[in-house]
């Protein structure tokens, strides 16, 4: 693995290796405080971001490395018409590794084709967000102690939510996972996920429209935001938006060891009253994002050093 563009680029062994390293970092933070000394991470964010960019920068700083970059296309040469290819070639002269977010789908993959240094996809439009997927996997592993044998409910916008698609694809390689897809019919997962992931791999899944009917079955619930702009008419949005608010009442039906995940940002789909419930993992999940990015930076720099 030279770059990380799509979570499915990683074999199960590579995922396990990154997650194990992340756990080792968590348990031995001081041992890693200088492993990237003298190395530079460039964060090229052609599109604004809060958590992802800051967690990449925090990750590199905790490894003893330095950070350079920009946080919007407005403050880069993209405004002068520079191509992505040229930006990547130039930044490769200054940095040892690049984390890149771009509004165009596939931009980091193209960056990887022309780059002399490792590229990490930090989100490309509505397409992929593999470091969020690694974050989700680390969170599931730490909360459940395993990445197989559970029932996961994915709730909300399953059509446009890139984190959901990446997570389904990544988890499809692990055994005995049952998927319950909770969404309005307007926001169901795309057909290709059904045919090319679930049906092709003989994976058990079910599509439902309310949380209540499945809550007691779930070991994990992965919440996402229902986005108003995705609906063709306001009435449908108003009708459906409150269906997917996870609150204390719905949690009464849930297992005692349910894990509640959310890639954040949250709007109102998880009541703030749930935050103090020990089953709420989403802020721990955000912290895991930093550790998994530390593990990924170390892994990619080591791999680059071997070439």
């Amino acid at each position: 693995m030279k770059h990380l563009i799509d979570s499915t680029d990683l074999s199960v062994e590579e995922i396990d290796s990154i997650l194990n390293l992340a756990q080792h970092i968590i348990d031995n933070k001081e041992d890693y405080s200088e492993v990237c000394k003298g190395k530079k991470l460039a964060t090229l964010f052609f599109e604004p971001s809060t958590r992802t960019r800051l967690s990449f920068e925090a990750a590199m700083m905790e490894l003893g490395g330095n950070v350079l970059g920009f946080s919007s296309a407005d403050s880069s040469s993209a405004t002068k018409g520079e191509s992505v290819g040229d930006t990547i070639r130039v930044v490769g002269c200054y940095a040892d590794i690049i984390a890149m977010r771009h509004p165009k789908e596939g931009a980091p993959m193209f960056g990887a084709m022309v780059s002399s240094v490792p590229i990490i996809n930090a989100g490309d439009g509505g397409h992929n967000h593999p470091t969020q997927t690694l974050t989700d996997l680390l969170t599931i592993k730490r909360e459940k102690g395993r990445l197989d044998n559970f029932t996961i409910g994915l709730c909300g916008d399953l059509k446009f939510g890139r984190t959901v698609h990446s997570l389904i694809k990544a988890l499809s390689r692990y055994k005995n996972i049952k998927y319950i897809l909770i969404s309005p019919k307007e926001l169901r997962v795309p057909d290709y996920i059904i045919t090319e992931v679930f049906e092709k791999n003989n994976i058990e899944y079910r599509e439902v429209s309310t949380m209540e009917e499945v809550m007691e079955e779930l070991d994990i619930i992965y919440m996402t935001r229902v986005q108003k702009e995705r609906f063709f008419n306001e009435a449908d949005y108003v009708r459906l938006k409150d269906t997917y608010i996870l609150d204390e009442t719905k949690l009464k039906y849930a297992k005692k060891d349910l894990s509640i995940l959310h890639p954040l940002p949250r709007v109102n789909e998880i009541s703030t009253k749930v935050d103090d419930d020990p089953r709420a993992c989403y802020f721990r999940q955000a912290l895991n994002g930093k550790y998994v990015r530390m593990a990924l930076i170390i892994t990619l720099l080591e791999n680059a050093g071997r070439e």
């Binding site: 191509s83 992505v84 290819g85 771009h102 509004p103 165009k104 789908e105 596939g106 931009a107 993959m109 193209f110 490309d124 439009g125 509505g126 397409h127």
Partner: peptide
């Protein structure tokens, strides 16, 4: 929305 729509090379 694909990068091929804007990147010439």
């Amino acid at each position: 929305r694909c990068i091929t729509s804007t990147e010439q090379e």
